[in-house]
Nucleic acid binder design. Structure first.
Lengths: 90, 90
DNA sequence: GACAAGATTAGATACTTGTCTAAATATCTA
DNA sequence: TAGATATTTAGACAAGTATCTAATCTTGTC
C-alpha cells in the first residue's frame, strides 16, 4: 500500500498544508506565508506531497498553483476502512 | 489531529503488523516471527503503535497479547474523509 | 536584454527514527 | 530459589528527514 502517501501524511506541517488546500487552491507563496519556516522548506514539503500524489501543481504565469488530489486520499481511506476500522465510519 | 497515529502509520513494518492483528489477536512473539528483523525491533514498533493508540496490549501469563484498537483508526478515517476525500468513499 | 518576483534545487546541518546487541524484567515450572 | 521462556528497555549507530542559506530557474515587465 501507498507508502509515500502515509509517509507524507506523517508530518504535521504537510497535513496543515493539505488542510489549507482543502479550503481552496493556493499558490506556493500563499501556502508558504502561512508557516514560520523558510519558503524553501515549504517548497520541499510541497514536493513530498506531489510525489505522494496528494496534491497536483500547475503553473499559472509567474505562480504555481497547488490543489488537492482527492484520489489518493480515497485510496488511503479505503485501505484503512477495509482493513482496520471495524466497518463503522459514518 | 492525532500526530502519533499518523507517524505510526508511516512505517511499512508497522502497517504490516496492523494487518496481522486485523486477522486475529497475536502475541508479541507470534508477530515478531513474521519479520526478518530482531525481536527487540518489533517490540519497539509495537511500543510505537501502542503509544499511538492503534493497538492495545494485555499480559496473558508469560505472553503479551496484542489486538487492534479500532477507535483510533476510525478517528483517522473520519479526519481524512471529512477534510480531504471529496465525500465519496463507499 | 536586464531586472524583479515567484518558486525550486543544491548542499549543509541537526534531529529523528529504525535497527542492532546486550541487559533487564516478568512469568512459569521444577 | 534457580532456570527457562517471553518480552521490553537501554545504549549505540546508521540512515532518513526537516530545516536553513545560497544558488538556480521561469516568467513577466521595463
Amino acid at each position: 500500500m501507498n507508502d509515500s502517501a502515509f509517509r507524507a501524511l506523517a508530518d504535521p506541517t504537510r497535513r496543515r498544508i493539505l488542510e489549507l488546500l482543502a479550503e481552496r487552491d493556493r499558490t506556493a507563496g500563499e501556502i508558504a506565508e502561512q508557516f514560520p519556516i523558510a519558503f524553501a522548506s515549504v517548497s520541499h514539503h510541497l514536493g513530498v506531497l506531489k510525489v505522494a500524489g496528494l496534491v497536483a501543481a500547475e503553473r499559472e504565469g509567474q505562480f504555481i498553483r497547488y490543489r488537492l488530489n482527492t484520489t489518493v486520499f480515497q485510496e488511503v481511506v479505503r485501505y484503512l476502512m477495509n482493513r482496520f476500522s471495524g466497518g463503522n465510519n459514518a
